[in-house]
Write a protein that binds this DNA or RNA. Structure first.
Lengths: 186, 186
DNA sequence: TTGCGCTATGTACGTTTGTACGCATAAGAC
DNA sequence: GTCTTATGCGTACAAACGTACATAGCGCAA
């Protein structure tokens, strides 16, 4: 498996290795949590030797940080795309409702990863830039359609609704979300 | 220190031991995260021998679960008290604003613990009852003052605003929070 | 006082961890 | 073809881990 490299080689010189390790790291974090993420488990998931871990990444924390950075960039990109598509104010409001309850990209796996990220960031102030970068992108996307004040409130309600929908059964029905967004964006 | 037991003993037979271990567990989780929480570290923080850990708790997960349960009960209790105090609708709305930005009980430490809890619960469906119990209490407190629909939306905005206020500098100013609550509870 | 039984603890054990490092090996110059 | 160089990896190691368990210490009945 995975023997179809670009240069015909069976191993050795695989420029996608680092990216694949990062991908595998997210997979391991999603299943085992940060607390269960080890060099060996990630290496197995990415199908690379253990030595590759310390070769490509300075430390385990470095690896986790890079993985989280990729996660936020991906999500921010999807988020931005969802709002770039909206043309009218009505469509923008509907996009907020989409994101609030059952976004296409907000799978259970991703939500788990986000919560792991939050907990991780809370204890490591030096990687808070990952969050602020993400936040800035989200805010920017929202402010293309709403005033700064409204954008702030929508950002918060998206955060809260997403978490509640994930944590509790039923959560917030789509109709209720629509009413909330209407109130907030008035 | 801590030698003022009820029966004059210096050690041995200390009925508060278990509670103190749970307290210490929260302390360790807040600083080191769940991933850095070990029997040994908790034992040191609680100033009890390592053997006490496996004696009082079936496993490390059992300990963490009990610690988180205590955390949610405490927070839910404070939350409930804050709303029990409110008499008029106006006071209830102001209580929501209080909780949204800079609650007395929502210290950085507690917020960190909550985020650790979220991440923990996401990977352990069998302790979701801790969350649903907390949620039920919060909802109950809110529904004493607001309709079910409004209570749901306020619950979500509290969640989101609290997290955003914790993650990002400035966050949501008090005045903005007041406007948001006014819109949502109309 | 003496003996019993339960509570509590010190210690030891087998695993797993992060990381360092010497060596194998492919790529490129000639 | 041969030699050189730098990239990538197998392996080893000390530290730390969760947990089991034999036994030490105390309250209490007699």
């Amino acid at each position: 498996m995975a023997a179809e490299g670009s240069s015909g080689g069976n191993r050795r010189y695989d420029p996608d290795r680092k990216a694949r390790i990062i991908e595998a790291t997210l997979e391991v974090i999603a299943v085992q949590g940060v607390s269960g993420t080890t060099h060996r488990r990630v290496a197995e998931a990415a199908d690379v030797p253990l030595g590759s871990m310390t070769y490509h990444f300075a430390s385990l924390d470095d690896l986790i940080e890079q993985a989280f950075l990729k996660l936020t960039q991906e999500i921010a990109h999807h988020f931005d795309a969802a709002f770039q598509k909206a043309q009218t104010a009505e469509e923008a409001r509907e996009a907020v409702v989409d994101v609030m309850c059952g976004w296409f990209a907000m799978t259970e796996r991703k939500m788990t990863l986000i919560l792991e990220l939050y907990a991780y960031v809370a204890r490591k102030p030096d990687i808070r830039h990952v969050m602020t970068g993400w936040m800035a992108k989200s805010r920017e996307a929202l402010e293309r359609h709403f005033s700064p004040d409204v954008a702030t409130s929508l950002d918060a309600i998206i955060e809260g609704a997403t978490i509640h929908n994930f944590m509790y059964p039923e959560g917030i029905p789509r109709e209720a979300a629509r009413r909330i967004v209407a109130k907030l964006s008035s």
